[in-house]
Design a protein around this nucleic acid. Structure first.
Length: 224
DNA sequence: CCATTAAACACCC
DNA sequence: GGGTGTTTAATGG
């Protein structure tokens, strides 16, 4: 179980819950740490928790039958994910890997279902999040075939600066170019090159181990 | 061939 | 020490 302050600090949507729902949610959450490189779960696992990133960075990916790696999303501190498997009560569809040392907060299924049945605030949050994700996945369709390296990196970054998914995130993201490469399927050199192209275009600023988004909206739509 | 990447190295926060 | 910029050799489409 986690404290009320901690809950509020890792779940921006917790503020939308009525007192009873807030308390139920808090009691249904436990925290757990994962080392860099560790799998939070594999495709096919039964993992009965809805999950938030309290601190860290995580990659949601799969490998196709032909062996091709495919990244669906990166989740940074403050992000919540995995509601699909809980809602449908089915095994995980994707692998999830910690790209750096990461602390997770995990809500058990019974609590999630109770919130779904009793909390309007929780449902509003979920609908908003699912709708936003839908938009991202539609953008993924053209991602692989038609976009060059800078455009792919820009969009990957755009998701990490999504104001609906990360309303308190601000414009600075602590991320290394190696981690960025892992997220969008580029080598470190290519990620470095792509990031400099985008800096020259004035839509972001590169710092040591961090990226500042000067224009988050243009990041998401880059290459359109 | 050309493009990309892994590996190795030297800087610098 | 970890992250970054660059070179070089290997790799693969």
């Amino acid at each position: 179980m986690i404290t009320a302050e901690h809950f509020l600090s890792v779940a921006f949507w917790a503020g939308e819950l009525a007192p009873e729902a807030f308390e139920r949610a808090r009691r249904g959450i436990v925290e757990r740490s994962f080392a860099k490189g560790a799998y939070l779960w594999h495709r096919g696992d039964r993992f009965d928790h809805w999950t938030g990133v309290a601190d860290g960075l995580v990659k949601v990916a799969t490998v196709s039958k032909t062996g091709k790696a495919m990244t669906f999303a990166g989740i940074r501190t403050g992000g919540w994910f995995g509601e699909g498997s809980i809602l449908k009560d089915e095994p995980r569809q994707y692998d999830v890997v910690a790209l750096r040392d990461t602390r997770l907060v995990m809500m058990n299924r019974a609590t999630f279902v109770w919130l779904l049945d009793h909390s309007v605030g929780f449902n509003r949050f979920l609908v908003r999040q699912l709708n936003e994700r839908l938009g991202q996945f539609m953008a993924l369709v053209e991602y692989d075939r038609t976009l060059d390296a800078p455009a792919r990196l820009a969009r990957t970054l755009g998701w990490l600066f999504d104001p609906v998914l990360y309303p308190r995130a601000g414009s600075v993201l602590e991320i290394t170019q190696e981690e960025l490469g892992l997220l969008c399927g580029l080598s470190r050199q290519s990620a470095n090159e792509a990031v400099k192209v985008l800096e020259r275009k004035g839509i972001l600023r590169v710092e040591h181990g961090a990226i500042t988004a000067l224009d988050p909206l243009r990041l998401q739509r880059f290459g359109e």
